[in-house]
């Protein structure tokens, strides 16, 4: 069992253990956001939303994305099998070589699907069609923001060598 869980598959870049932790970690954060965030906003208004950001996203950042380092290991600890040691539930595939997959992915997909499932059965296709341009605009904005931010590595301003 232990051998199976820690077998590394080159084709998918993950171990079965990595797949399980990724799915469970993303399940946890999405479920808590769906259940709690809206209610906190109802109860406390905008302060509730900002509080949710701190307590939900902060906590689940530690669950899903934490890496060792207190200013001491900013380049991460090398794993004996290659790549870096990962302590978070969301496993970055190919031993950490994959571009950063954030838990925003799972929260966005989860909230999108949840409001789709909560819609009336007959209207779901219309709901999807209405939302796609907004999703496209948002993803386009994210691509622009991320790409331009990534350009700072070409300006030679690499803090901590990262």
């Amino acid at each position: 069992m232990i051998a199976f869980l820690s077998t590394y598959y080159d084709a998918i870049g993950m171990t079965p253990a990595g797949i399980l932790t990724t799915i469970f970690g993303s399940f946890c954060v999405t479920f808590v956001v769906i259940i709690c965030w809206g209610k906190l906003v109802e109860d406390f208004g905008p302060a509730g939303g900002m509080l949710s950001a701190a307590i939900i996203i902060g906590t689940f950042w530690v669950v899903n994305h934490k890496l060792p380092g207190f200013g001491i290991n900013p380049d991460c600890i090398a794993s004996p099998d290659g790549g870096i040691k990962q302590y978070g539930m969301i496993y970055q595939a190919y031993r950490g070589a994959c571009p950063w997959v954030d838990m925003g992915t799972t929260i966005a997909i989860g909230l999108w699907c949840h409001s789709l499932f909560m819609g009336k059965p007959g209207e779901r296709l219309a709901l999807v069609r209405e939302s796609l341009p907004r999703v496209a605009a948002l993803v386009f904005g994210g691509i622009i923001g991320g790409a331009i931010l990534g350009l700072i590595s070409y300006s030679g301003a690499n803090l901590f060598g990262g």
């Binding site: 997959v101 838990m103 925003g104 966005a108 999703v135 993803v139 904005g141 994210g142 991320g146």
Partner: peptide
């Protein structure tokens, strides 16, 4: 989250 995911 869509934007943050794409940006990441």
């Amino acid at each position: 989250g869509f934007a943050i995911s794409a940006a990441g």
